[in-house]
Design a binder for these strands. Structure first.
Lengths: 350, 350
DNA sequence: CTGAAAGCGCTTACAG
DNA sequence: CTGAAAGCGCTTACAG
């Protein structure tokens, strides 16, 4: 490990002042073209790399975004993260990621470490616990503190900040409508992520469609620690279920798996629609009809929204108060029709 | 957004010097207990949060780890990332992540941004292109520069740094052996990640087992841009294939899907063993027998290895040269027997 | 026990 | 066109 090369060292080598070297490297017109190129050449030769910490300290910005997601394993979040990383990268931002594991405390801790000036802004999807308890103090603190915050997917209207989401209510209603129209009579709503905002929206959309079709809604919640099949199968039998709207990809797949193992034919006996468009649903047999949650797109938009907010902050350094109001981006979304439903109404299948 | 509170501001409020405030906050025994508590109280009251940038600049360490993975979507990397994040978090480290998208150039660029002093060390799994071309300059530069580097899964023996992996050769041989022992006669090796180190090892292990059983090896490579089924099905027919060792989870699943759709019974007509232990294989019908790649564990070990290396660097500030030699961690691994193979030899099934 | 000073590596008004 | 100086927010020898 050689001694790190700094401006000071270059200056010594060149018999110039640190200021001149710095300005040259930053292509300041103050400095003669000749000096500039002399400096740059030596810098290159010595593999000079500016110290980002020092630059950030001076500029009071870090060009990094803090990202907090509740869980990295579901493909929705994996894909969202991918969208975030690539969009941020292209804009010259790095991302620091924390996983809250659905815990408010971990969420608050991560947020706290972001307060020390290592990030310019924050992108977050709320932990399940946070949505259940609606404890938002730690988030309001961030907002008060003045660090731009963008929520995605699991959002809260009580927080005064930008947000990105899909219209879960509407698309769930549409998905349920479609199952009705394809002949399903007994459609249930199945969720393992209950008490999240998205779950509630989807459930309401489902209920709306059920009402419209004069069908009683039936909601089945299965906790992670419960035996999935043992909970699901009796319901399928007792309710003569012929349609399932599943709030997440994994439970859609597990439903199909359980049903098929017990003699159901999909989609003849049972239609299934899930959420998220991941590999698992795409490659299952039968492949899963699913709501496209636009994971990557949500991530991308979250970054763009955040960055434009950061630029606003730059412009009007002082009169903070007239920052434009928070924007709520709601993405249009579609159902991807595959093999787990009958009569695809739209053309798309695979 | 209120004015940020700094040591200077606290000092002003308390009528003390900045030094004293700093020392108090750091619980220096130099300072009287009374002053210390007075300072801390006020700091708390004012929500003082030390500026991490300034601290890092001073200490010349950032408590953050740079992570580069080739692709975030395969569950192996998702899980590895999870292991990295949680282990790092517990040890008080943050992680900055970059995705190389299997490209050497992107890998090199990301590495370069890590050189600016924002990370203390780096964890990386090599891009496919990097392994294909064996261009390692950008990595050697990091090593020369003195930033600790730990490779995992896709590693290279030509790089003088710590590494974490499983014994791909041995476990692939074992998986093939098991298929032979369960009665398979025509086992092929299928890969979509060819030219990676892990692929080569697995292929060699497979070939070894084939030789042992006096069977001709047959290797099928399918590129991402090729039609999977069209490439696979003729081979299955022509070679009377009754066993597939698939180098990754997705191609194992796609094989099963294609085979089942075309009338094969699994595992009666065709046994399949994959790599990685992800949701997709676990929940497919039939569930996939698979090599446990210990993704999370690899991530965890990578962090631990890196951190212990960082601590060494701390201790002997100067005599760098006698840093202990790189360590190669090779994790013991097992095959998880599920429904896609016959006669599970070990007990485990689900 | 407290404080003045130097310094981490930069940038940028301000002089000359 | 070049440089001395101040400052970003901290920590830590060193004086007193």
């Amino acid at each position: 490990m050689e001694q790190k090369v700094t401006l000071k060292k270059l200056a010594g080598l060149l018999n110039l002042s640190i200021s001149t070297v710095s300005k040259s490297l930053n292509d300041s017109p103050e400095i003669s073209a000749q000096t500039r190129s002399r400096v740059k050449q030596l810098a290159l030769l010595n593999n000079y790399i500016p110290n980002g910490m020092a630059q950030s300290l001076k500029a009071n910005k870090t060009k990094t975004i803090g990202v907090i997601i509740p869980n990295i394993l579901p493909s929705f979040f994996t894909k969202a993260l991918y969208g975030i990383e690539s969009t941020a990268g292209k804009a010259g931002y790095r991302i620091i990621i924390c996983i809250s594991n659905e815990s408010t405390q971990k969420e608050a801790e991560s947020l706290k470490t972001f307060l020390n000036g290592r990030v310019d802004g924050i992108i977050l999807s709320l932990a399940k616990e946070t949505q259940q308890t609606n404890k938002l103090d730690h988030l309001n603190r961030i907002i008060d503190y003045g660090i731009p915050l963008v929520l995605f997917d699991r959002i809260s209207n009580e927080l005064r900040c930008d947000s990105i989401s899909i219209d879960d209510h509407k698309i769930a209603e549409k998905a349920t409508d479609e199952m009705h129209e394809s002949g399903c009579r007994n459609i249930i709503y199945l969720s393992t992520i209950f008490d999240t905002s998205v779950d509630l929206q989807r459930q309401n959309g489902y209920a709306m469609s059920q009402a419209k079709h004069r069908a009683k809604p039936f909601v089945l919640h299965i906790r992670d620690d419960e035996a999935f099949e043992e909970k699901l199968l009796p319901v399928l039998a007792e309710k003569s279920v012929d349609g399932i709207l599943a709030a997440d990809e994994l439970s859609a797949i597990r439903s199909m798996r359980a049903a098929i193992k017990h003699g159901y034919k999909i989609p003849e006996d049972l239609s299934v629609i899930g959420f998220t468009n991941g590999f698992m649903g795409e490659h299952f047999l039968p492949s899963l009809s699913t709501v496209n949650q636009h994971a990557e797109e949500q991530g991308k938009l979250a970054v763009e929204t955040l960055i434009s907010r950061l630029q606003m902050d730059n412009d009007k350094t002082l009169d903070i108060k007239n920052n434009p109001d928070p924007v709520q981006h709601i993405l249009e979304t579609l159902i991807i029709h595959r093999e787990s439903t009958r009569h695809p109404l739209a053309g798309l299948s695979r």
